[in-house]
Design a protein around this nucleic acid. Structure first.
Length: 278
DNA sequence: AGGATAGCCTGCGGGC
DNA sequence: TGCCCGCAGGCTATCC
C-alpha cells in the first residue's frame, strides 16, 4: 500500500545511487509488467533504460519517473505490493522480482522491481512529454501541493462523498485509503460529507491537515501495514501515528467513543461519528 | 456523463 | 495441523 509518503521514501532512498549513474544490464524476468508507450518497437531492455545515464527521479502522487539524460523516461507505479529497492548482487532474488538492473555506481548491488500482486507496473516513454500526455496529465496536483481552491473547484456540484474525491487521483494525486481516513479525522470532517457541499474554509482545513500528516509520515519512513518496507528492508514507523486507520472499534482519541467502520466507495473506512461532522 | 461497481492478483490470518 | 475463505488495496473497464 505505498501511498505518497512511502513512494517519496523510495525516491529518496534510491536517488543517490541512481542519479548520475548508468544502468548497465537490465534483466526482464516478467515482461507483462512492462508497457511500451510512446516509444518505438516491442519491449526490450533498451526501453527499460539499459545503458542510459540517469538524470533525475521525479514523483507525482504515487508514481515515479526515472528520467534518463537522453530524455527517455521510465514510469514506475508500485500498485499496492510493489517495491523498488537496491539489493545485494548474488543473493537469490525474492519471488515476484520482475525486472532488475545493474548499476555503474554500485557494482555490488542491483536495483530490483518487485510486485507480487502486480497492481503496479513499468511504463516506457520516449520523452517526458509522452509520459505527461499518456499518464501524468490525468493526475491532479500532488497532495503536498494541492490547494483548497483547487479541491473546491474540482468538487463543485459533485454528489460524491468527500473520501471518494480524496481517493480520486485525478482530483488530487498521492492519497490512498490510509491517509484519506487520517486526514479526514484530523480535519474533523466525515468521510460521508458530500464533496460538493464542503466549504472552502473546510477544504483549507483538510488540505492543511493532509499535508501535515503526509510530511510527518515521510519523516517516519512511511507506514508499514503489511507489504511496504523501506529501501533497506526495514519497517516504516508512520503507522504509529495513525489515529483511525486499522483502529475500528477502538476508542476515539478525541472523545472516547468507539470508532466506526464501513465501506465508502468500496473502501474500508474508519471514522469517529461524533468528532467528524458531515 | 458522472458515479458506482466488478475484477484483477497474491499473501496472510481467522475459523473450523 | 491444515485447508479454505475473506479481505486488503490502486486502478481500469464496464455498467447504470
Amino acid at each position: 500500500m505505498p501511498e505518497l509518503p512511502e513512494v517519496e521514501n523510495v525516491r529518496r532512498a534510491i536517488a543517490p545511487a541512481l542519479v548520475g549513474a548508468t544502468f548497465r544490464a537490465c534483466t526482464i524476468h516478467r515482461a507483462d509488467v512492462c508497457e511500451v508507450r510512446g516509444a518505438e518497437g516491442s519491449l526490450s531492455p533498451r526501453h527499460l533504460l539499459e545503458r542510459a545515464e540517469i538524470g533525475a527521479i521525479n514523483r507525482r502522487g504515487k508514481q515515479l519517473a526515472i528520467v534518463a539524460r537522453d530524455g527517455r523516461v521510465l514510469c514506475v507505479h508500485l500498485g499496492m505490493s510493489g517495491s523498488l529497492e537496491l539489493v545485494p548482487r548474488g543473493r537469490p532474488l525474492a519471488p515476484h522480482t520482475h525486472v532488475t538492473w545493474t548499476l555503474s555506481s554500485t557494482p555490488d548491488q542491483l536495483l530490483a522491481f518487485r510486485d507480487p500482486r502486480r497492481f503496479g507496473g513499468l511504463w516506457c516513454f520516449a520523452d517526458q512529454a509522452a509520459l505527461h500526455e499518456d499518464r501524468w496529465n490525468n493526475l491532479g496536483p500532488d497532495a503536498l501541493e494541492v490547494t483548497a481552491v483547487h479541491l473546491h473547484d474540482a468538487s463543485k456540484g459533485s454528489a460524491r462523498k468527500v473520501k471518494a474525491l480524496l481517493l480520486d487521483q485525478g482530483a488530487v494525486a498521492g492519497v490512498g485509503n490510509i491517509y484519506a481516513d487520517e486526514a479526514l479525522f484530523a480535519a474533523r470532517l466525515s468521510p460521508h460529507a458530500r464533496a460538493g457541499k464542503v466549504k472552502l474554509s473546510t477544504w483549507g482545513e483538510l488540505v492543511e491537515k493532509l499535508r501535515g500528516i503526509l510530511l510527518a509520515s515521510i519523516n517516519e519512513g512511511g507506514s508499514t501495514i503489511r507489504d511496504y518496507r523501506g529501501p533497506t528492508g526495514e519497517a516504516g514507523r508512520a503507522q504509529r501515528l495513525h489515529k483511525v486507520y486499522g483502529r475500528a472499534g477502538e476508542a476515539c482519541e478525541g472523545c472516547g467513543s468507539r470508532l466506526r467502520s464501513g465501506a465508502v466507495g468500496q473502501r474500508t473506512t474508519v471514522w469517529c461519528h461524533k468528532c467528524q461532522k458531515v
